[in-house]
Amino acid sequence: MMIQLENVTREYGDGKLVHALDGVSLTIDRGERVAVMGPSGSGKSTLLNLICGLDEPTSGVIRIDGADIAGLDDDARTRLRREKIGMIFQTFNLLPTLSATENVALPLRLQGLSRRDAETRANSMLGKVGLAGRSSHRPDELSGGERQRVAIARALIFDPPILLADEPTGNLDSHTGEEILTLLDNLHREYNTTVLMVTHNEEAAAYCDRVLRLRDGRVVKEEVVKATRLGG
């Protein structure tokens, strides 16, 4: 089991409480790909934030690779994220002042690798995502699809067991979106990463093994899909 949630709730606000997540339990196995779908405000992003340790649950247990993260302090959760979780976002979240290589090298350097080694590996990773010739460009010199490829390269460079993706195609046109999904699919086969993807897009969900549907902070439906595997 790579990710396990037991009766996790997350409430916001002092006076009038908002239940962003309300007693969610789920289990995701190593190498499994799970899509989380649901309308705005259903708790998708909260779920992602809790799993990566950016947020803390009000109650319940969250285990990542067997370790309960609810009891960890902020620094320990941050280190866990650094070592086990790669993240990609709808808005890419690249550092605007760094080049593609430097952005991709960031997680390795945070883990203590030398700049030269980190950037060598980053360049090779950029090759894998099809950006070999764009390594010295800054984010504002890249297209949306290229930026998301850089973000994917950054997320996977340290070979994390878990990849969390928050609307990875949300900011892209359908053609580029499809390219990104194919890329993720290929990389999944290479790395066998556990993927949790928040998405509005049914096509994106179709690339996963399982779809969880959320509404008002609860898992209302869970369906197993036969994943679309391009080239597979």
């Binding site: 990566c52 950016l54 902020d74 620094d75 941050t78 280190r79 994220r81 650094r82 070592e83 993240m87 979240n93 690249l94 550092l95 960031l106 997680p107 945070l110 950054r154």
Partner: peptide
Amino acid sequence: GILRALGVERP
């Protein structure tokens, strides 16, 4: 925010 998400601690 990005640095924090990537694993840079508060201190």
